[in-house]
Amino acid sequence: MKMTKIYEGSHQWIMFGRDEGKPNNIIDTNQYVVRTANRCLLLDPGGAELFAPMMAAVLHHAPVDQITDLFASHQDPDVISSLGLWDQALTNAKLHAPAIWEGFLRHYSCESIEYVPIPDNGGTIKLESVELQIIPAHYLHSPGNFHVYDPQAKILMSGDVGAAIEGPDSPVFVDNFAAHVEKMRYWHQRWMPSNQAKRVWIERVRNLDIDILAPQHGRMFKGDDVKRFLDWFDALQVGIAV
């Protein structure tokens, strides 16, 4: 599993992905970790197939007992089907996930982990002195969907927004936006169901100061590419399957 530190300040952000041991027939995912002095938050920790390499990778940065928080942007299996395993491995952890998905996500087994339901208007996750904002992103693509913004690190973890299907050796950052567009187009047109939801999200996100936009699949966007992505997404018609 490739590990890339994308922010280092009072706390750290680490991106995990491009797992070379991943079975070919499951989608590649990016996982993110926010590490403070004594706590650790896993953002979209991944599917059950990914549990062992993900846990092994996290152990380079934090001991098991300091993995205190998980966040699931939505209910998809590539996001959180590992929940039942984390539930058995972690003795004192919380899962921050959309309130409307609680009864569904508990099918993955959530006995020892405390489910912290996120209301539709979002909220915050406090990790020691770091306060992360939970940004509503409903219908992008899931009916109950959230992203995480760190105002200190200026990183927006954007779930499936900004995603692209890439090969295992692809770089972790977009290096040529124009060339990258074609890797994203069908994904966004097909997976994102609502132009209205898209516009509301873009309006909300344009008010945030973002250095890195970090999706759950493919490459991250940094610097001017963040604005380029928002402009491109703004102009894109989505929901093409109907």
Binding site: A52, P53, M55, L59, H61, A62, V64, D65, L85, A89
Partner: peptide
């Protein structure tokens, strides 16, 4: 899975915590 994770984590700073 836990055993596999422990094996894969060999050499990691916090491997023993597994």
């Amino acid at each position: 899975k836990f055993e596999l994770a422990a094996k894969m984590a060999e050499g990691a700073v916090y491997a023993k915590s597994m």
